[in-house]
Structure formats: structure tokens, C-alpha cells
Simulated assay, not measured.
Amino acid sequence: MSSVPHRFSARRFPPALAAQALDEALATGQPVPVLAISGLQGSGKSTLAAQVVELARTRGLRAAALSIDDVYLTRAQRQRLADRIHPLLATRGPPGTHDLPLALATLDAACSGQAFALPRFDKLADERVPEAQWERIDSLDLLVFEGWFLGTPAETDDALREPLNALERDADPEGTWRRWCNQALADHYPALWRHFDRLWFLQPPGFSVVPHWRWQQEQGLQQAAPGRTGMNRAQVERFVQFYERVSRQALRCLPDIADRIVVLDAQRRVS
């Protein structure tokens, strides 16, 4: 595993970094390589994914990006989980709140050269975009798949005993929710990870930067859709606690798993 010594502005990564990601993906020799970009909330995954896709297209390649956030379960599906297993499962984010059959079918179709549609999720509405509005893809030369915990393994049972934050302490004192999510991560997500031909990890200095980064992301979402309601700062602070446990596991494990590590500072500059 190796770090990438570049600098980038607050909004875009340096072109050389995107070129390196593209070249490494294409060098795998797969007919339709899947470049996975993993990184905690607000780290710039979607920005880098978009740059790689843009660069690929300038080279005459057919490329598209998909986020694991685009394959969340619908609100109704999550509510059924909340009613049956634990109330916290109504909130999107942790392992177990994704439609993995949809994700796997999308990746399988992309890698086999079939026509397919790219799923999309509306975060402000907290609901999947209707399928009729998904982009239709005839075939691809490259798929960039990005997500906040791609490649992360499950924790041990012992690690789940004590609550990690106020959310777990107050809303999951018996550990039912965190154990269920961890079991989903252990049982169902490795099948998704096996589709990756190359895994990059955007590594922040620690979890402490995530609430601020996610708040910046939320502000961007709201600015892009004036008049629509999103989360306020306090709601974002609580929301990131749903992600904290698996995020910390990613920080511990992904440096030893990823094919390449991009080390970020608190301002998201690559160092």
C-alpha cells in the first residue's frame, strides 16, 4: 500500500491524481474494471470519482460513477426493519440499510457489458429516486464505485460490548442495533467487495473531522436545491454518530487492505 503525494484545492483533486486512479484501474486488464474509492463522509469520494469519469471520457472511454449511497433501501423498507428489529434502522447509512441485491445486480450488469440503469438516491428527500428517472447505460469501459465504508470488515463481538457514543448509549443500550449492523457487514457485504478490481482509500486525519466535513456536504446539498429542507448542524452532529463505529473500523483496517492510500489533512489537502 502506498500514499500519493499531491496537493489539491478545496473542491477538486489534482489532475495527476485522477489520472493515476484511472491508469491503475485500466491496468487491471479487466474488460470493465471497477475502481472503488472508499473514504469517510465528506472526504471527497464523489469529487474524485467524477474527475476520473470525466478524464476517462476525454480519452474516448465509456465511464460512469455509482455511489453506495445510491442503493439505500427505500424509506418504507427501512421502516419495516425498524419495526421488526430496532428503531435506529429507519435511518439510512450503516451496513444493513442498503439494497445489496440491487447493488450486486448493477455491478454484475456493468461488468458483463449489459445495458442497465444507474440507481439514484435523493438525500434531501431521504428516498430513492423513481426508477424511471435513472440514467440508462448501454455498456461501459469503466465503473467507479464510491462509498464511505467500501472494503471495511466487520468488528469482533467483543468490540461491540460498550457503546461508542451518545447515540449508542441512549438509543441502543443493549447493543441490538450495532450487533445487527455488524452481522450484516460480516455476512452480506464481502460479496460486494469482491467486485472491486482496485480499491483506493481517502484517509482523513481521524474521525474528529467528519462532523465538520459532513456539515459542509449538507450545506452544499441545500445550496444546490434552494427551497428544500435538509438537516441543521445539530441534526448532522447526531447523524454522523450512526456512521462513527464503522468509520473508526475503516480507519483501523483499510490502510492495510486498500491498494492505494490517499492521506488527507483536516482541510482535505493531500499530503
Rank of each mutant, 00 (worst) to 15 (best):
I137Y: 07
I137F: 12
I137C: 06
I137L: 02
I137A: 09
I137S: 08
D138E: 15
D138K: 04
D138T: 15
S139E: 11
S139Q: 13
S139W: 04
S139H: 14
L140K: 00
L140C: 08
L140P: 02
L140I: 04
L140S: 06
L140M: 02
D141C: 06
D141I: 06
D141L: 10
L142M: 04
L142K: 02
L142D: 01
L143T: 03
L143P: 00
L143E: 00
L143R: 01
V144M: 03
V144R: 02
V144W: 00
F145L: 15
F145P: 01
F145H: 02
E146N: 02
E146G: 03
E146Y: 05
E146L: 04
E146S: 01
G147A: 04
G147L: 05
G147F: 06
W148P: 03
W148R: 03
W148L: 01
W148T: 00
W148E: 00
F149K: 00
L150V: 01
L150M: 04
L150N: 01
L150R: 02
L150A: 06
L150W: 03
L150H: 02
G151E: 03
G151I: 01
G151K: 01
G151R: 00
G151D: 00
T152V: 11
T152I: 02
T152R: 09
T152S: 02
T152M: 05
T152L: 05
T152A: 07
T152H: 07
T152D: 05
T152C: 14
P153N: 07
P153M: 06
P153E: 04
A154D: 11
A154R: 04
E155L: 15
E155V: 08
E155Q: 15
D157T: 12
D157S: 14
D157Y: 05
D158Q: 15
D158C: 08
D158A: 15
D158V: 08
D158P: 01
A159E: 15
A159L: 14
A159V: 04
A159G: 12
A159H: 13
A159Y: 13
L160I: 06
L160E: 04
L160N: 06
R161S: 11
R161F: 09
E162L: 10
E162D: 11
E162G: 00
E162K: 10
E162T: 12
P163I: 12
P163D: 13
P163Y: 13
P163G: 09
P163S: 10
L164T: 03
L164M: 13
N165C: 14
N165D: 15
N165E: 12
A166G: 07
L167H: 10
L167I: 08
L167Q: 11
L167M: 14
E168N: 09
E168A: 14
E168F: 13
R169C: 09
R169E: 14
R169P: 07
R169M: 12
R169V: 07
R169D: 12
D170S: 09
D170T: 09
D170Y: 06
D170F: 08
D170I: 05
D170V: 05
D170A: 13
D170N: 12
A171H: 11
A171C: 11
D172V: 05
D172N: 10
D172F: 08
D172Y: 11
P173A: 07
P173W: 14
P173R: 14
P173M: 10
P173G: 06
P173F: 14
E174F: 12
E174Y: 11
G175W: 10
G175H: 12
G175D: 06
T176P: 07
T176Y: 08
T176M: 13
T176E: 14
W177T: 09
W177I: 08
W177Q: 12
